[in-house]
């Protein structure tokens, strides 16, 4: 069932995001063509060239923002608006619905990143491009020479962390919308309220940490010393622990929001 849900969610994303991604590639291509017909010391040329660069940057930003907004809007529309009457009468569990929406959002987030990367490659095609790839290859080679397979582990951990971080951000939005739909009216407003509440809680926790650090500096100094000593003795293990621990925290947080959203959808659905 998840496969079927993903198929239809994919279609709903594709029809909106794919054209934008193609536009980005188109602008990048135009930018490259402009560079090919360079006219030195021409103010008109430099205006056109700068405009195409600005346009490309704006298109990339719009695409990234649109990916996030679309992920949130499709979740709300598909599950808590009139489309929810169809979605929730399909023989599918709430977990499957959330998982499918999350999967498609991640696929398109990856698609957006890839599109932007390809657009940069097109716009810088030629010497700049070759130099950039050479530099990246050199840095990676150096890394492998120095730390060997640890480099692969780092790259893998960073990738997992990025995926889990995006999943967590999306799950926070899903959670807010799920709580928001409980309201008899002004559901979106409540969802924003919940988001603001979560932000406030994290700020309070952060501030509390700073206050504790000010009140008991010795305790923090001791903690810092212990960590610094451990990091010095086990350099690689320490950085792996930081990356994996961070990823695990993202996973746990996302799992909590997933479970709450699922429970709300299962036991407190309020399609009014």
């Amino acid at each position: 069932m998840v496969k079927k849900l993903v198929k239809y969610d994919f279609k709903s994303f594709f029809r909106l995001l794919f054209p934008v991604q193609m536009i980005i590639l188109g602008i990048a291509l135009i930018n490259r063509l402009i560079q090919l017909f360079e006219v030195r010391d021409s103010s008109a040329y430099s205006w056109i060239f700068t405009s195409s660069i600005v346009l490309l940057v704006i298109a990339c930003i719009v695409c990234m923002v649109m990916t996030v907004i679309l992920s949130v809007v499709r979740f709300y529309q598909g599950l808590y608006s009139s489309e929810g009457y169809l979605s929730h009468t399909l023989p599918v569990t709430p977990s499957q619905h959330i998982f499918a929406k999350l999967s498609v959002s991640l696929i398109f987030a990856a698609g957006t990143v890839l599109t932007i990367f390809v657009a940069i490659c097109i716009a810088t095609f030629g010497e700049v491009n070759i130099e950039l790839f050479k530099a990246a290859g050199y840095l990676l080679g150096k890394g492998f020479d120095k730390i060997g397979f640890q480099m692969i582990l780092y790259m893998l951990e960073i990738l997992v962390y990025a995926v889990l971080w995006i999943s967590n951000v999306l799950m926070i939005f899903y959670f807010c919308l799920s709580v928001g739909q409980l309201a008899p009216r002004k559901k979106i407003l409540l969802a924003f309220g919940v988001l603001f509440g979560l932000y406030t809680i994290t700020q309070i926790i952060g501030t509390a940490g700073i206050i504790i650090a000010v009140i008991a500096p010795e305790w923090f100094q001791n903690l810092y010393d212990v960590i610094a000593e451990f990091a010095e003795a086990h350099r690689y293990l320490f950085s792996h622990l930081i990356l994996s621990g961070g990823a695990l925290l993202q996973l746990l947080e996302a799992a909590v929001f997933f479970l709450i959203s699922k429970t709300i959808m299962k036991k407190k659905l309020n399609l009014t």
């Binding site: 239809y8 279609k11 709903s12 029809r15 009139s82 489309e83 929810g84 009457y85 169809l86 009468t89 399909l90 023989p91 599918v92 569990t93």
Partner: peptide, 25 residues
């Protein structure tokens, strides 16, 4: 539950179909 949804065919009083789809889809 999921099992009862297999047995019940429901027509809501709102326009609930995914408007961006074609009839065939």
């Amino acid at each position: 539950s999921v099992e009862t949804k297999k047995l019940v065919s429901y027509l809501p009083d709102v326009n609930y179909l995914y408007h961006w789809m074609t009839v065939e889809q």
